[in-house]
Amino acid sequence: MEYFLILSAIMMFAGIFGFLTRRSTLAILLSIELMLNATDINFAVFNRFMWNASGAHEGYFFSLFSIAISAAESAIAIAIMINIYRHLKDISIDKLQKMKW
């Protein structure tokens, strides 16, 4: 079980690192998906190895729902990126600086 948790922790922090360092908004979106997948692994693993005795499947179901929700989220996010691309012809995060402070 520890191995799975270590894997998900690595994925999570790789995602956070990517979120903070990538310049393209699409790469940032990918990093966020990585983070969400790490949580899904966590839920499934905790269910499988720790709370499986009573036949409860809450963790699995949570993973399923969260996959569906993250798909919806990325759909909206990509739609917004397309809209930005139409305005700027570029989706680099450095260009999103009309409003600051």
């Binding site: 999570m12 995602g15 979120f19 908004t25 940032i28 979106l29 966020i32 983070m35 969400l36 790490a38 949580t39 966590n42 839920f43 905790f46 269910n47 709370w51 809450e58 963790g59 949570f62 969260s66 993250s70 989220e73 909206i76 996010a77 917004i80 990126m81 809209n83 930005i84 305005h87 700027l88 999103l96 009309k98 409003m99």
Partner: peptide, 29 residues
């Protein structure tokens, strides 16, 4: 354009924070 930029900033951070929140929930679970 401002509207799109605002939305991009909002959704990226919203996704980031909900990923953190989910990670927390998985620990609580």
């Amino acid at each position: 354009y401002e509207s799109a930029e605002a939305a991009a900033k909002y959704i990226l951070l919203a996704l980031f924070s909900s990923a953190l929140l989910l990670y927390g929930l998985s620990f609580i679970y």
